[in-house]
Design a protein around this nucleic acid. Structure first.
Lengths: 111, 111
DNA sequence: TGTGATGCCTAGGATACCTACATATAATAT
DNA sequence: ATATTATATGTAGGTATCCTAGGCATCACA
């Protein structure tokens, strides 16, 4: 009802996940933690956004999943970037650079 | 079906419109033209996105509409920013700055 | 014993955007 | 004279994304 603003920019979640996974195989829960840490709490991924996104990316063959032991000793699902995922990440980076620069042009227009 | 990427970053349309209207009263069709011009064709607002957005912003009292003659001699609906719209624009600018900077932190993380 | 952190998941709802369509006028080209 | 393009506004329906709110399980620690 109260139209609260999202915790992130719609459409950037896939790119953020792909980027973090590109840093090295990592499990879902840790992806959200890393994004939060690196962004100094500015970006907070809800679990209800995270897991569907991971399944989406896996289905599109951009990520590959594998159950392994986490540092904690417990089982966790580790994700790795595929070759297609690397290409997709590059595309999304370019799209982000292009669009955010364009928004900058608008927002810096003097009156 | 084909998951084509959007012409803009989801969630930024309202901010872009508020910003352009803040430059001076302007009608809907011209808003889309200005956004396209200033962004050098990088941002293209579809009519099916534009008009619902304008109605949304007017309903929230961030814009005020008035029918007037356009330069073309034809009638057009001119929009002006309200005081609440000015506050909203400021908030959206801050949110954009915060989130886009945070995304920059993630995307520039070295491996 | 129970609480918090870790770790995975889904269902349902809200919102935003796009495609496609509909309508009308004015200017320009053929 | 006629057709097309640009201007100008609008809606309906579909899709995708994200969030809230829940559920389940394990482990450490108080």
């Amino acid at each position: 009802m109260d139209a609260e603003k999202s915790d992130l920019l719609q459409g950037t979640l896939d790119m953020l996940i792909l980027k973090v996974v590109a840093l090295g195989p990592i499990h879902g829960y840790a992806i959200a933690q890393r994004i939060r840490q690196i962004s100094r709490d500015a970006l907070q991924i809800q679990q209800g956004s995270l897991y569907p996104a991971l399944h989406r990316l896996e289905k599109r063959k951009w990520l590959q999943a594998e159950w392994r032991d986490a540092e904690s000793g417990r089982e966790a699902k580790f994700y790795a970037l595929t070759a297609a995922g690397r290409r997709q990440l590059k595309e999304e980076e370019e799209s982000w650079a292009r669009l955010s620069a364009a928004i900058g042009l608008i927002m810096r227009t003097p009156e």
